[in-house]
């Protein structure tokens, strides 16, 4: 009985986690990237999954906004899950490959939008400091 509950719960957890991560991404996907971030990241208008690691490195260089920490971790975990699926299940089920690539690209775009916000936040902080 416990094994059955565990399997069902784990499957539901996976599904809820994927939907939750996608809801976080959906909230920022409509936001256009600034020209500055497009230049820095090399993302023209649509991102690719390979951009994610580079954007995360750039994000580490900017001061963190406390309210972003949780969701960035969630998307990081989601990206890890997609990488895992892409290197295991997607090799057996080819249809999964295009889905994981599309999702990975959206994760990269989400990270780029977050970078945009962080840059704006840092600029505001600098402006406030110079006023003082």
């Amino acid at each position: 009985m416990a094994t059955l509950i565990f399997l069902l719960s784990a499957a539901a957890l996976l599904q809820f986690f994927i939907s939750y991560s996608r809801s976080l991404i959906a909230a920022s996907i409509k936001q256009p990237l600034s020209a500055e971030v497009r230049d820095v990241t090399g993302i023209p208008s649509t991102a690719a999954g390979e951009d994610f690691a580079r954007v995360i490195q750039l994000l580490d260089l900017c001061p963190e906004r406390p309210e972003e920490r949780g969701r960035l971790r969630a998307i990081n975990a989601y990206f890890g899950l997609l990488n895992f699926v892409s290197s295991t299940l997607a090799r057996v089920i080819p249809a999964l490959m295009s889905w994981t690539e599309m999702e990975r690209a959206q994760c990269a775009y989400f990270a780029a939008v977050t970078l945009d916000r962080r840059i704006a936040f840092s600029r505001d902080m600098l402006a406030q400091q110079s006023e003082v």
Partner: peptide, 26 residues
């Protein structure tokens, strides 16, 4: 959006706890 986020996070919470309880029993 707010309602969707609340329900999905509750789903993650319940499923994580149900899995943890089951794991503890196993």
């Amino acid at each position: 959006t707010q309602l969707i986020q609340l329900v999905l996070s509750l789903g993650v919470y319940f499923s994580a706890f149900a899995a943890t309880f089951a794991l503890e029993n196993m």
